Simulated assay, not measured.
Amino acid sequence: MQLATPHLTSNLTPQVGRRVSLRSSAALGWQGFGVEMLGIPAGEHRIPATTHHRIGVHVGTPVKARCLCDGRRVARIQAHGDADVIPAGLDGVWTDESDCTILRIWISDEFARTTAGQLHLNPARAHIRPQFQLRDRRLHYLVWALRAELEAEEASDALYAESLCTAVVVRLLEGAPEPDNRRRSLAPNAAARVIDFIESNIDKHLTLAELAALVDFSVPHFKVLFRETLGMPVHQYVIHRRVERAKTLLLQGRLSVTQIALEAGFAHQSHMAHWVQRLLGATPREIVKSGRDGLDDHRILPAGKA
């Protein structure tokens, strides 16, 4: 995956022309990757090489466009969902005949290398190759899910975005194996180790990498095993446990709502309120009141994507 290119820059958003950042994941606590919605004016844009891999996905009405990258000239009608995959170390020139919007995903080379290593791929063959006007249904599903996280009023736990980005890398890596859908599960002692760690660190920022390392599995493998064992993805399990912790503290009534949010691992009070309402069907204030009245009928409700 190493690309030897001089004059690399670590600038995640090369500013050429009048590109405008409409929305960014910078404040969401994602590590090793990010997502940004960019407004791109008509005209030519020279994008320098970076130390990150980039995926640019066209959003909205079709636009006539051209690009020069990796020694290739491509002229096309860029339609909604069309993606350009630009590996670290490649620069290029993109020309759009009309204003357009691009959803840009960046992935650090370290994140991609770690994922490739966990898949036990041959380092000489495991790489992300440049692709232009890519149309891949499974990749689109992952990209739009990341966009939904970017635009959500309250984003899910960062574990969910990490899981999506890991799947993006697996999809783009050359030589990555097709997923094995045979039913498997974590051994009971391994599952207990992961669950105990989550409970003991529920107030901290958890990552898939550290959870997978507890049981010596790759992140992609661990995600499958965890879901088969617990009946839900890792990020859903963690958000459910955060809500249960918050509920317990709210019923005890000894801490402020702000303190409880932090103790339960939420980013802030409104983040906690969103998930408590969604999973318990009640506001934090209503739960506090039920505790004072000696009532507690707030249980985790069936939920969709957490």
Rank of each mutant, 00 (worst) to 15 (best):
R73E: 12
G34Q: 11
V215T: 08
F226Y: 04
R193D: 08
G281Q: 10
Q78L: 15
N189Q: 14
V224H: 14
P130E: 03
M1C: 13
I86N: 00
T9E: 13
H127M: 12
V224W: 07
I55H: 01
A212Q: 04
D99N: 13
R19S: 10
V257H: 06
T61N: 15
R182H: 08
N201M: 04
G231K: 06
D216Y: 02
H271K: 05
T9I: 11
L134F: 03
P233E: 03
A264N: 02
E149A: 06
K289Q: 14
T61R: 15
T258K: 09
C67D: 09
L208K: 04
G294E: 04
T248H: 11
L164D: 09
E153I: 13
G43M: 07
Q118E: 13
L164Q: 08
P188L: 05
A79V: 08
L68H: 12
G92Q: 04
Q31I: 11
D180K: 05
L214H: 04
A75V: 11
I105C: 09
T207Q: 10
L280C: 09
P130I: 09
R227N: 11
H274M: 07
L208A: 08
H53Q: 04
A246M: 04
V59R: 15
G34E: 02
F217T: 14
G71I: 05
P123K: 07
D70L: 05
R182K: 12
A124S: 12
G43H: 05
E244T: 06
Q78D: 11
V219E: 06
L295R: 15
L208M: 11
G17N: 09
L211D: 01
H271G: 09
A273N: 07
Y141I: 15
M232V: 13
H80M: 04
Q31R: 11
S218H: 03
A42F: 01
D157W: 05
H298G: 05
Q269I: 10
H53R: 15
D109Y: 03
V35W: 03
P220M: 03
V35F: 08
D157Q: 11
K223E: 10
A27E: 14
G39E: 08
R46H: 12
R72T: 00
T114P: 01
F197M: 05
V234W: 02
R46F: 02
V224Y: 06
F226K: 09
A152Y: 02
E210Y: 06
I55F: 00
F33P: 08
Q252W: 02
A65N: 02
D293S: 11
R104W: 06
P41G: 01
L249C: 07
L211S: 06
S156F: 01
R76M: 15
E178Q: 13
E97C: 07
E153R: 14
F33Q: 03
F226W: 01
Q259V: 10
E244C: 08
E44P: 01
V170Y: 00
R137P: 06
